[in-house]
């Protein structure tokens, strides 16, 4: 564990708390892509299978995994049942097959071992890299976002961004590199670049998140 990794994880944690706060206080999931949230549930369930196989890493690791699985399922519940009328499927139209299919194929080709657990782990890494796309697509389509939603996305993007110095640190401290995680992580972080540009130049200057027409 190094400071970048810790800050990254805390940022991930913060992003989920911001999202929950947004849904609870506005009593609405307007502007949030159900598809992206559903993909995160798939990502966490397929990646954290090791929880049930007895591979113990640390209390921190287990607690975080349980939190991510629990909170992502809870968010789906809020969106699908509790605040269902506030979700508009007509603007959440990204085809998730285009993300799940290629992720599965990549996982079958590029993995560390031909076992179910390792293939699902690789699948979860590839899927996470692109899971934000329905959300970004929705943002692009509507051209604007509530400020709180942009803070959620910024925290989520910061989490992935912070994993990069973490990997550089690990390379120098333990000589290890996880190529699957690194390549997928770079792609994932890259997807946020446009968003971050608008976030820094508009939202953090006190303006509304609006895309030029």
């Amino acid at each position: 564990m190094n400071v970048f990794r810790l800050l990254g994880d805390l940022s991930h944690l913060a992003s989920i708390l911001i999202l929950l706060h947004k849904i609870q206080t506005t009593r609405s999931c307007r502007g949030i892509s159900f598809k992206t949230q559903a993909l995160y549930v798939v990502v966490f369930l397929t990646r954290y299978l090791d929880l049930f196989l007895g591979d113990w890493v640390s209390l921190y690791n287990t607690a975080m995994k349980l939190f991510f699985i629990g909170s992502s399922c809870y968010i789906l519940y809020l969106m699908k049942l509790r605040f269902r009328p506030t979700h508009d499927p007509a603007i959440d139209t990204f085809r998730v097959e285009y993300l799940v299919g290629p992720s599965l194929i990549l996982a079958l080709i590029f993995n560390y071992k031909y076992t179910l657990v390792e293939i699902l782990w690789a699948f979860s890494i590839y899927l996470e890299a692109v899971a934000i796309m329905p959300q970004l697509f929705m943002l692009q389509r509507t051209g604007e976002a509530e400020t709180i939603t942009t803070h959620y996305l910024a925290a989520l993007g910061a989490y992935r961004g912070l994993y990069i110095p973490n990997w550089i640190y690990r390379y120098f401290s333990d000589g290890t590199v996880d190529p699957i995680a690194v390549i997928a992580g770079l792609v994932q972080t890259g997807l946020y670049l446009d968003f971050f540009y608008v976030y820094f130049t508009r939202v953090l200057q006190g303006q509304k998140f609006e895309l030029p027409a």
Binding site: H12, D50, M64, R170, Y171, G175, V177, D178, A181
Partner: peptide, 10 residues
């Protein structure tokens, strides 16, 4: 470099 053993990242 080596690939880390197991997956300790989240």
């Amino acid at each position: 470099f080596e690939v880390p053993e197991g997956h300790d990242e989240l």
